[in-house]
């Protein structure tokens, strides 16, 4: 021991060496922080939790076992009386208590059975949550990828539909220019939905439904002043948003359309495939090449799928 001290006598450090790279400001902050942690008055909930824990620990430890028990004078006295473990009482009286009763603390005024009912519900929700949680990383990655794919596909379906519509319009226009007199243009909105090919009918229908709703809303929630102002001219009305645009509704908007429903129920990639095929057939247009081929052979197009165009 003495030699250890001898070795050490020149040591000039006192206790822990202060960190070299700590400035006085940092040090002050650190000390303050540490002081705060040390001096913080624990919240009542924290204290209660600590007490509960300590209580549980004490309650679950038998005093008849362990080193402490060997020193116990009480146990020694009992041993002198013939105590050899087990319960007290006469030998005939079997089944006496060995464990002391546990005190059960009751919080609040919940009725009998409320706690167990709560626990049961908690357990049930915990179980159902557990089931959901059982998804591993790969699955998650897969799912995200699939979702991305689907979303992309949906976007492409929409784009393809738009193309269909545009092509159709162009075709109509050209046919009109060829045959009938110009100016007698048939607007799409008045065309019966059923006459539109199912491949892109959905696009029109959704648009029409939205417009219909907007209109209904406009007419059902009128602006506050509902009187007709004679002084208002058309421009005023337009500025105040009081003009009631008259839309020609698609005739069969409210009708059931099982054909369309069936189409909508398809997966996005199937829909896209059908649309691509439709475009090729009707308009000799390749959705992937973005090109309208002059003949049906569609020379130069690498294939039907997107991958073919890579």
């Amino acid at each position: 021991m003495a030699s250890d001290e001898d070795d050490d006598y020149m040591n000039m450090t006192f206790g822990e060496e202060p960190k070299a790279n700590e400035t006085s400001l940092q040090r002050r902050q650190r000390l303050k922080r540490e002081g705060e942690i040390k001096g913080r008055v624990k919240s009542k909930a924290e204290l209660a939790a600590e007490e509960r824990e300590a209580r549980e620990a004490a309650l679950s430890k038998s005093m008849l076992e362990g080193a402490q028990a060997k020193k116990s004078k009480g146990l020694a006295m009992m041993a002198k009386m013939g105590f050899k473990g087990g319960a007290l009482g006469s030998k005939e009286n079997a089944g006496a208590r060995v464990e002391p009763l546990r005190p059960e603390m009751k919080d609040g005024r919940g009725g009998i059975g409320l706690d167990s009912e709560r626990k049961r519900k908690l357990r049930e929700t915990a179980e159902s949550v557990e089931k959901k949680v059982k998804i591993d990383e790969n699955e998650f990655r897969d799912r995200v990828r699939r979702e991305c794919e689907a979303a992309r596909c949906e976007r492409q379906v929409y784009a393809a539909m738009k193309v269909c519509e545009r092509m159709d319009e162009e075709k109509q226009a050209s046919s009109a220019a060829e045959g009938e007199a110009p100016g007698k243009k048939r607007t799409l909105s008045t065309r019966p939905l059923k006459s539109i090919p199912v491949a892109w009918r959905g696009l029109v229908r959704t648009r029409e439904v939205e417009r219909d709703q907007r209109m209904k809303q406009q007419s059902s929630t009128p602006r506050l002043p509902m009187y007709e102002d004679d002084l208002e001219d058309e421009d005023d009305k337009k500025a105040m948003g009081n003009t009631l645009d008259s839309y020609a509704l698609v005739q069969d908007l409210d009708e059931e359309d099982p054909e369309l429903d069936e189409f909508n129920a398809l997966e996005a990639d199937v829909k896209l495939k059908q649309l691509v095929e439709y475009l090729r057939k009707e308009y000799r247009y390749c959705f992937w090449c973005k090109f309208e081929y002059p003949d049906n052979a569609m020379d130069g197009c690498p294939g039907l799928t997107e991958e073919d165009h890579d």
Binding site: L64, M78, L88, G89, S90, K91, N93, R97, V98, P100
Partner: peptide, 12 residues
């Protein structure tokens, strides 16, 4: 220890 109580208490 062996006092004949109807319900002897816990040894502890």
């Amino acid at each position: 220890v062996h006092f004949d109580l109807m319900d002897p208490p816990a040894p502890e």
